[in-house]
Simulated assay, not measured.
Amino acid sequence: MDRRLNQLLNEAPDAIIIADREGGVRFWNRGAELMFGHSAAEAVGQSLDLIIPENLRKRHWEGYWRVMASGETKYKTGLLSSPGVRKDGSRVSLEFSMVMLRDEAGAMQGCAAIMRDVTERWTREKELKERLTACETKLAAVSV
């Protein structure tokens, strides 16, 4: 691999994760280590369940198998949002884009995700929405 591409993939602050057709981790960069708390040595070879909250796994795998079988996804462009789970069990709010990975014949081989931790922004937005709802409730009570 070209040295610059290797630097880009390994040193990017965003998590870059590649999973094979079966959902096994095949690449885990430094950003993923920092975001999720698992070293590359701990993550590579493991299932993506490593970062998927238990209550969301069934839905995740239904979608994953559908995409691997069909080669199609409605998420070709734009950002997806989902919670993830860190090694210590804490949750992280994620935004990510996906890339479908195919062999030379076009058969699905897996996918890659580029993930960003948006937990801080999500928490701020949630607090603002709660404050707005409280203000609207008070205003509605005063104007009655």
Rank of each mutant, 00 (worst) to 15 (best):
D2V: 06
R4D: 05
R4K: 13
R4P: 04
N6W: 12
Q7Y: 14
L8A: 08
L9K: 03
N10P: 03
E11L: 13
D14E: 13
A15H: 03
I16F: 06
I16T: 06
I17G: 02
I18D: 10
A19M: 15
A19I: 14
A19Y: 11
A19W: 12
D20M: 09
R21W: 06
G23N: 05
G23P: 00
G24L: 12
G24F: 09
G24A: 11
V25H: 00
V25K: 04
W28Q: 03
N29A: 08
N29L: 10
N29D: 05
N29H: 06
R30L: 09
R30M: 07
G31I: 08
M35D: 04
G37W: 07
H38W: 15
S39W: 02
A40M: 07
A41M: 09
E42V: 09
A43F: 02
V44L: 06
V44S: 09
G45I: 08
E54F: 01
E54P: 02
E54K: 04
N55D: 15
R57P: 02
K58E: 15
W61Y: 09
W61D: 07
E62N: 10
W65V: 10
V67D: 08
M68P: 00
A69H: 06
S70W: 03
T73G: 04
K74G: 12
K76Y: 04
T77W: 03
L79A: 05
S82L: 01
V85N: 01
V85L: 01
R86D: 03
D88L: 03
S90H: 05
R91Y: 00
R91F: 02
S93C: 01
S93P: 03
S93W: 04
S93Q: 05
L94M: 00
E95S: 01
F96D: 00
S97H: 03
M98I: 14
M98C: 07
V99W: 05
M100E: 09
L101Y: 00
L101K: 04
L101T: 00
L101E: 04
R102S: 13
R102G: 10
R102A: 12
D103Y: 01
D103P: 00
E104A: 12
E104I: 11
M108H: 07
M108A: 15
G110E: 05
G110N: 06
C111R: 15
C111M: 15
C111P: 02
A112L: 06
A113W: 07
A113L: 11
M115C: 08
D117N: 05
V118I: 07
V118Y: 03
T119G: 04
T119D: 00
E120M: 09
R121E: 10
R124G: 03
E125T: 13
E125N: 10
K126R: 12
K126T: 15
K126G: 12
K129G: 15
R131T: 13
R131F: 07
L132K: 14
L132D: 11
T133S: 13
T133K: 13
A134V: 10
A134F: 08
A134T: 13
C135L: 13
E136S: 08
T137G: 10
L139T: 12
A140N: 13
A140D: 10
A141E: 12
A141C: 09
V142L: 15
V142K: 14
S143Y: 11
S143G: 12
